[in-house]
Design a protein around this nucleic acid. Sequence first.
DNA 1: AGGCGTTTGTGAACGTACGCACAAACTCAC
DNA 2: GTGAGTTTGTGCGTACGTTCACAAACGCCT
Lengths: 251, 251
Amino acid sequence: MSQQRNGQAAGAPDGAGFPDLPEATVARLPEYLRALHHLAETGFDTVSSEGLAAAAGVNSAKLRKDLSHLGSYGTRGVGYDVALLIAQIEHVLGLTQRRTVALVGVGNLGHALAGYGGFGTRGFRIAALFDADPGRVGEQINGLPVHDIRRLPEVVAAEAISIAVIATPAEAAQQVADQLVAAGVTSILNFAPCVLSVPDGVDVRKVDLAVELQILSFHEHRKSALTTLPSHPANGRVKIRPALNGEALAT
Amino acid sequence: MSQQRNGQAAGAPDGAGFPDLPEATVARLPEYLRALHHLAETGFDTVSSEGLAAAAGVNSAKLRKDLSHLGSYGTRGVGYDVALLIAQIEHVLGLTQRRTVALVGVGNLGHALAGYGGFGTRGFRIAALFDADPGRVGEQINGLPVHDIRRLPEVVAAEAISIAVIATPAEAAQQVADQLVAAGVTSILNFAPCVLSVPDGVDVRKVDLAVELQILSFHEHRKSALTTLPSHPANGRVKIRPALNGEALAT
DNA sequence: AGGCGTTTGTGAACGTACGCACAAACTCAC
DNA sequence: GTGAGTTTGTGCGTACGTTCACAAACGCCT
């Protein structure tokens, strides 16, 4: 029944008194983690909420509230211990154990993802590649062989894979998702531009590059409407007619 | 001063009586648009809010409220005219004119993005590729030549580019962003895992693949903690101690 | 030991977003 | 023309997220 739910409640469904993190906070923790790793490499032992907030690109009050949700260890008058905070966040995110990931669809994008080295340093290991195209099966990418999609259940079980990435064309995505769920995968990152329907208990997050560009396009449209239309008065019933005021952009 | 702001207010800064779209609505419009195109191809002339909501993976009430914000033309008792609604949304998103996009960084990911055909059908045209590596300059990808990054101002002006995609390593991203802004780009889609600092009036959206996986990891962690700990009541003051795991995955 | 400056953690106010539920508006059949 | 059925548009209650502002807690200097 459950359609795709990007912003699923992070909470335990039962009534346990578990410190539930707001979903918005969960989405920011990885940013903090990245900033913290950078600080650690730069030689910082401690950091103030102000400093970390700047490094992560957020408001310092928001950062403090976020960290307070995980009962964080800051020291008043000093700040946060960088190493300790890294350990805390990694623990909360479940990154203390390295997670194994399957990637389905070794086309243009899948190829790039398989070759991206950034995952290894952020707690993940791409453990298996799959494709339905017999022409691609057997190919090696970055030292990993491409399996036939039919071997999904076998490999998922053997490698203890719980997260999968779908990088197939949109037409194939739902079928792939079904196969993944049947094989025991419970978290899916979907790059295909389509809505996936999955059972309850399975999380889906979506990344659609065209959607991101279209959102930017909206703001671009808005900006240019503001700057280029010095006037364009009452025209009957046209919806949305940004109109007016030549506002000079900064720079 | 402005750090990166994904969720920027969509509103006109002045007091004009403009139908300001909530940012959350703007983020969903591209989803509706995709669903509508799919419906149009499938032969639908009209669609109810219920039907479109299902296709886009959202609640029907939310969809109706979103569409009402742009003064949309639905007909009570019938539904929405698919073609009309497509035109409306494309107009609001500024997609009536095809937007030209520059892509900086032709590495692993940039290569895949340059080769991705999906942009063309969604209102965008990748008009130019750039890289700082002299070894890559001159190379042809998908019929497009890779320019030296130093030709940025020239090409951006010639092609009337207002949106750019950064697919460089994190270390280079800020410098590239500065160059883009200097060249006149006012919207940036950033794939590099770092915070970009840009002047006011420039929009930045970020896509970080590792962040998406880490969010999934959190839920995964949560799920396994729930399934393996049938009970684990009041444990004093331990912050989040999901602990353990030898997860029995579903199915 | 005590006071001062700094920084965290959080209560409270505010704003935004969501979803229900219903009246208004429309089509269609007769 | 009238009534029945369908679907939109939206007012309202509620939940969530953000920001401000301040008291409590800490280090450090004297």
